[in-house]
Design a protein around this nucleic acid. Structure first.
Lengths: 121, 121
DNA sequence: CCCGTTTATCGTAAATTTACGATGGAGAGA
DNA sequence: TCTCTCCATCGTAAATTTACGATAAACGGG
């Protein structure tokens, strides 16, 4: 009977529990109203390899990075700027003006928040 | 001079470092070739509120969940099935056949991997 | 063997994302 | 002031995502 084997392939408890009708007062965070939206929003910010690369580069130096991020990526300058905008809107990076250039750095709080939300899944 | 103030708003070190030309042998994980793609792929799986809700519900019971996930979400059955497919392809959930129903549960390894990648940013 | 239940897939439409070149604006220096 | 550099924004095209209803496929029960 392959049914049993298929179940084992899924998870160890052989039986199928009913859906828990969600908010059961188990953990405060995951009950909070915007939990799913907030996690999805932060995850979406990192849901593109180019944006991950940007955050990676920004983390590596713990200072601001002047704009030659474009040279890191096989993308046009306007595209990189657009990705930076996405990251800024999600609160993952912050930017400031330094002379004619821009200055970017990651906001550690946003990444910590993402980790926190993940831990409370 | 508002330039200085703007810098402070970005990060505490007042100066702007050059981009670090990425792979500098600092940490093995973040150097690995597919790091950005893998993180982006996992993040993308959670980049939609409905998929977060699904994972949430699947985590809450540590067993398989029979299919009435549809009742959790304000979405049509085919849409939920599509989101489940995305999660399965990303390796975040696993499914098995139980009689006429399907049986889903999360793959903790995938979520741990996501946390690991985030920690190595 | 048919039937009802459950879920995946197909076809499709709307919305969003991704990417590019072109343009514009802000600041530094001649 | 004029110009040059750096970057954001605009306009736009292609690709992807999201959502739905309709249909098909798998299974157990009668």
């Amino acid at each position: 009977m392959k049914t049993k084997a298929a179940i084992d392939a899924c998870c160890d408890t052989g039986s199928c529990a009913p859906v828990p009708s969600l908010p059961k007062g188990k953990r405060a965070l995951s009950r909070s109203k915007g939990f799913d939206k907030e996690l999805a929003r932060l995850a979406k910010a990192l849901a593109h390899p180019a944006r991950v690369r940007i955050v990676q580069a920004l983390m590596k130096v713990n200072a601001c990075v002047c704009g030659d991020l474009v040279e890191l990526l096989p993308l046009a300058q306007s595209t990189v700027s657009q990705h930076l905008k996405v990251l800024k809107l999600a609160g993952v990076v912050q930017g400031a003006v330094e002379g004619p250039k821009r200055c970017y750095c990651v906001n550690p709080a946003a990444l910590n928040r993402l980790k926190e939300l993940l831990s409370n899944l």
